[in-house]
């Protein structure tokens, strides 16, 4: 039993640990900086790192580190929320497609196909053009965009598990559908579903950064990693950390989770 839990943990804890690390950074990070991220100081713009400003200043002379920590908060929390939405709705529909009547699967399956055929950036542009940009709109939009993928993964998993003998035996015993879903199917999906959550999270980070870079994501005075890159584009000429560091953070965030996922799914 303990060996089994140990095995489970070693397979998936890297991904979970990494996500928890970023969440903690997002929640607690801004508290670590003494600078008001919005305050425009008297410092020169795009200054080099110094003792007062560990990562220098940005195009308005604001403290880069303070803004970066705030940017991470927005990026990580927004993406985490949208991933939660997409994965829980997707898993729910995926299992429903397997356990409910055939027409549920036909309906949800075709809907998912339809959504998957729309390019995600285009869809996001369209929604934001109609409803305007806000935190809720971004979470819901990204949630909707990644639900079909999560739906497909969970449906495929549930379909395989629902055909196994122990589910057949539970059905023959007369167990209720909620019991079969919660006790027999769901616990055996968690491993692959954690991988899926990690993957959707990466997609969401990239999409949000794209949107913010285009100026339709997180709006000033709030800041996220994508909008930081856009604001400080001019700093590229000076090699300013204000532009480079958020790019590096986006890279570290996505590639790091990706590597953790690869190492956990590659080993047996």
């Amino acid at each position: 039993m303990i060996a089994m839990i140990g095995k489970f943990r070693s397979r998936h804890d890297r991904v979970l640990l990494l996500i928890v690390f970023w969440l903690l950074l997002a929640l607690l990070g801004p508290l670590c900086s003494s600078h008001d991220p919005g305050a425009i100081g008297s410092q020169p713009v795009f200054s080099a790192p110094s003792a007062a400003h560990l990562l220098g200043t940005d195009y308005l002379g604001r403290d880069t580190l303070g803004r970066l920590l705030n940017g991470i908060r927005h990026t990580v929390l927004l993406c985490f929320a949208s991933t939660l939405v997409s994965c829980s709705v997707g898993t729910f529909l995926g299992i429903a497609a397997v356990t409910a009547r055939p027409w549920v699967e036909a309906l949800t399956g075709r809907l998912a196909d339809g959504f998957l055929s729309i390019p995600s950036l285009l869809f996001a542009l369209l929604v934001i053009a109609v409803f305007g940009t806000s935190t809720t709109a971004l979470i819901v939009t990204m949630g909707v965009i990644y639900t079909p993928g999560a739906y497909r993964t969970s449906r495929a998993l549930a379909q395989r598990i629902a055909r196994l003998d122990f589910v057949t035996v539970a059905r023959a015993r007369g167990e209720s559908t909620p019991y079969i879903i919660l006790q027999e199917i769901l616990p055996n999906m968690t491993g692959p579903m954690i991988t899926d959550v990690g993957l959707r999270f990466i997609y969401a980070v990239l999409l949000l950064s794209n949107l913010s870079f285009l100026g339709i994501g997180v709006q000033p005075p709030e800041v996220d990693l994508g909008s930081m890159v856009r604001e400080n584009m001019l700093g590229m000429a000076y090699g300013s950390p204000a532009m480079i560091v958020p790019v590096v953070v986006i890279g570290v965030l996505t590639v790091g989770i990706n590597l953790a996922l690869d190492s956990s799914s590659g080993r047996r």
Binding site: F166, A172, Q183, N188
Partner: peptide, 21 residues
């Protein structure tokens, strides 16, 4: 009726829920 008639399924590998003791 369900209690009186029990099914023992075929495949030893898939017949027990792998996540439950």
């Amino acid at each position: 009726q369900r209690r009186h008639l029990q099914l023992v399924a075929q495949n030893a590998d898939s017949v027990l829920n792998p996540s439950k003791p």
